[in-house]
Design a protein around this nucleic acid. Sequence first.
DNA 1: ACAGTAACACTAACCGTTAGTTTTTTGGAA
DNA 2: TTCCAAAAAACTAACGGTTAGTGTTACTGT
Lengths: 197, 197
Amino acid sequence: MTVPTGRRERKKAATRQKIADTALRLFLERGYDAVGIRDVAAEADVAVTTLFAHFTSKEALVFEQDHDFEQRLAHAVSAREPGEPLIPALRHEILALVRHCTAEGSAPIWRMIDASPALRQYEETMRLRHAESLAEAIAADPDLDRTAMACRTIARFVIDAHSLAREAADPDAAVDEIFRMIEGAWDAADVRAAANS
Amino acid sequence: MTVPTGRRERKKAATRQKIADTALRLFLERGYDAVGIRDVAAEADVAVTTLFAHFTSKEALVFEQDHDFEQRLAHAVSAREPGEPLIPALRHEILALVRHCTAEGSAPIWRMIDASPALRQYEETMRLRHAESLAEAIAADPDLDRTAMACRTIARFVIDAHSLAREAADPDAAVDEIFRMIEGAWDAADVRAAANS
DNA sequence: ACAGTAACACTAACCGTTAGTTTTTTGGAA
DNA sequence: TTCCAAAAAACTAACGGTTAGTGTTACTGT
């Protein structure tokens, strides 16, 4: 079989990391738009084609945590304690993610993202993906018998919460307020509760 | 004075229309990705720079109704009868807009949009703009004393409703279901109701 | 040791987009 | 009518992200 032992994979990962680190450093030093792909490749000492073998686009160089983010949300849904309600679990996870964005270390990166239309646009595309994957995680939970559409809808709302709270003056308060509304939406999607009213 | 009489404006509008019509025809004939900007410009018999003087990007050639859409939503909020509740008014407008997207005539265009990553990404950017402008319209209504954050949140949800319902198998039912959830979110944002509970 | 393959390099181009400059068209005044 | 200022459009030439095609090197499993 072909389960490659370490060295090749390590070298590949090292190349990828070197590219990502170089790119982020240059972007923060000179500004995203002022740094070209050819600059990054030269500084990282790789060919342009190599760079694009590791990252699908210039914007992807900035969003490395993309996959983590997606998985943390799905995990927050699937790894709940038995009987633990959905929305508070999501609220807790989103709050942690928002705090991570607004923390000292990450702040310059997000300021750069907010300043660049290309990066904002890329973030939007990611958000749709995240919402879809979150919707699937919610729909997969047997304890929550909502319609597929209700799951997709609430997933969108949760992703919106992250986007809105991330840019708010008081992120913690924003998460509180938005999740109160999401809770209302989730309750309204409960068909049994609607029948009992 | 500098109030140009009609001809110049008419010719400019005609050029713009010719470009848009040519582009849409070619896109639908050969596919969005298979048609280049230079193809469109040649077929419309204008210079490439002229095309970009009328449209800010290739994607913008497809989304001409953009401005209409934005204004119709804001109008649905500001032009309510006195005492008419917000959410049903928005529900009515979104339903009309969704039906317009899924109507016979527009269907091929939206199929093309859904098939092209570039167009989907552009649509996402538009949606953010629409949500912001809708949020302002809602915040401007003196009868609705919700926080600015609640207005922005509900605006996002309404835009999400359009996006989700547009792609649903049964758009009318989707609008119903999603707006039941939005109603729940809107009620939960009412601080006075929360104090009474 | 060897063959196959994954990672990478190099060239050259495509495509969307823009800056700089010049020509044509148009509306209004002399 | 004739001429001028300004708008619209054209032309040229490039820039920057991205990809295809083609080798070359280095690692892995046999």
